[in-house]
Amino acid sequence: MSLTLFLIQCLNGLQYGTLLFLIAAGLTLVFGVMGFINLAHGVQYMVGAYLVFAFQQLTGSFVAAVILSMAAALLLGLLLEHFVFRHLYGRDHLAQVLATFGIIIFLNELAKILFGPGTLTIEPPEFLAGSVQLTEQLRYPVYRFVTILAGLIVAVLLYITVTRTRVGMLIRAGATTPDMVSALGINVQKLFMIVFGVGAMLAGFAGVIAAPIFAIEPGMGDNILIIAFVVIIIGGVGSIRGAFLGALMVGLFDTVGRTLLIEGLEVVFPPSVSNQVGPALASMLVYILMAAVLVVRPQGLLPAKGAA
């Protein structure tokens, strides 16, 4: 692999990783604080992508579409929280899985009806179009840089919120000792709503910024949801730092590792073998990473202290 290709893969990995972080962060917070397993988190990501598509068609402006989409994603999240999730916090995980599975089926079907079963694409806005010349041979799209940057900024903001603010203190307390929070006389329901709203916004935001990069299609949130779970298993449940580390590891493993693996196999084995084994092994790569972490540290690399 040439150096240029390697660098591009690294950037792609970083970009994928930051996107995964945005999704995993919401998922891990909601689980850490409420003990709620939200399978519909991925579909909320999909909704973000469709929203930005629809609003851009309506307004013609990417920026307006982003703002409107975020608001709508938040609204959807709060509606779901109010009508469904709130009633399931105290229940067993099986009921949560069933309900959120139902929501996935509903929203995927709705997207198919409203926008058709095919894939949609949108262009990044004009002022973010084009690419940057990094080295003589390496150009990288501006928009992808911006998504990396946006992801990193959100990561920092989230980290500061969780470690330095009062809400963050409650979130951390909630993730480790939920009884303590209610014992302190905090309005738990309000805290839950805030956490859930933040999670919904993060998922929606991830969908919004992913829309110009990936194809928008029904079910696009399902695969990424499962990868987000892998991120959480690697990083440790309930932990923002863990989600960040896990997301970058998975992002880089899935891009750089995949290429390296296939090229490595080509060196060692004849093409007839490597062409068959390569893709199969490459698609297992992040799960093998997860398995390795489970062997060494079943609780994840950076778990929130005391969380399950």
Partner: peptide, 11 residues
């Protein structure tokens, strides 16, 4: 219809 049916079941 199936999706909401599951939600109702769960609830």
């Amino acid at each position: 219809l199936y999706g909401p049916l599951l939600v109702l079941m769960a609830l």
